[in-house]
């Protein structure tokens, strides 16, 4: 059986792709990018959390908390990866909103179809 979090992650991915292809408002496109990114982050995070022999994994490294010998741990690497990826996502979002503000100043519209002056 496919775990629920994987299904959710791919659902988020397809929602994001749908919005990216069929929406025309620049802000909605930015949100679509963010939803795609979040879907991938969910996928990555859930790779670290696996059930082994029916036992739930515990937190990986936690001061003042001894892991029981033999209990599986949550993988720490995906969490580090997702943290990095979130930071990158924030940079892209900040730049995207800044460009959108500038586009509104020049074109007076947030419709992506109005941004059609470059041709050839």
């Amino acid at each position: 059986m496919i775990p629920l979090q994987f299904i959710t992650a791919f659902l988020m991915l397809f929602m994001g792709f749908y919005a990216f292809l069929y929406k025309r408002n620049l802000l909605k496109l930015i949100l679509a990018l963010d939803v795609i990114d979040s879907g991938i982050h969910l996928l990555l995070i859930s790779f670290g959390y696996r059930l082994e022999d029916g036992t739930l994994p515990t937190a990986p490294i936690y001061t003042g908390y001894e892991t029981l010998k033999g209990t599986p741990m949550v993988g720490p690497i995906p969490q580090a990866l997702v943290l990095t990826s979130i930071v990158i996502g924030v940079c892209v979002l900040a730049l995207a909103t800044a460009l959108t503000i500038n586009a509104y100043r020049h074109y007076g519209s947030l419709d992506i179809n109005k941004l059609r002056r470059l041709r050839g």
């Binding site: 991915l13 991938i40 996928l43 892209v92 460009l99 500038n102 020049h106 941004l115």
Partner: peptide, 30 residues
Amino acid sequence: WEGIEAGIKYMFVGSLASSFILLGIALLYG
């Protein structure tokens, strides 16, 4: 307007491409 329009187009396409690459890397890690 030229720079802004080109920048926005480049940014959306480029970010989508980056998402594809990240998804590929995530699948390989999984």
